[in-house]
Design a binder for these strands. Structure first.
Length: 123
DNA sequence: GCAATGACGCTCT
DNA sequence: CAGAGCGCCATTG
């Protein structure tokens, strides 16, 4: 079962970022991690989303891996649900269940994102 | 404190 | 282009 966070409040940051993903757009785990200020910790994003349970207001469905593919967590059915939700939002899927990242990749321009980018690319 | 696991990412084959 | 392997860090037992 999902690894229940033992009182970690840092995941709220992840939820905040995922919540900013516009409808019809998708972001990768690594991207979300960078926006949170924790580059390289893409896995943590996965745990945070897994801890949601599906009853949260966080659009976890818009978060996929860098390959544009939907990751499974032990229940393949959820992957189908996720794909259906994304398709309903206007996200196009290619053969093999891959998302066209070039067309639907989320490009945030918010100040927070700019700050994160600045740290990633200092001058 | 060490070993095992995981909704990941990148590189090589 | 697809599949397999290795590396990354954090959480859990």
């Amino acid at each position: 079962m999902p690894r229940t966070p033992k009182g970690s409040g840092g995941w709220e940051r992840i939820y905040a970022v995922v919540r900013r993903i516009p409808r019809g757009r998708v972001a990768t785990y690594g991207q979300v991690a960078r926006l949170c200020g924790m580059p390289g910790r893409a896995r943590e994003v996965g745990w945070a989303l897994a801890a949601l349970g599906g009853e949260s207001a966080v659009p976890w469905q818009r978060v996929i891996n860098a390959l544009g593919r939907i990751s499974g967590r032990g229940e393949p059915v959820a992957a189908l649900v996720q794909r259906a939700l994304l398709e309903r939002e206007g996200v196009a899927f290619a053969s093999g269940g891959r998302v066209d990242l070039e067309a639907h990749a989320w490009r945030p321009r918010a100040a927070a994102a700019r700050r994160a980018r600045a740290r990633r690319r200092p001058a």
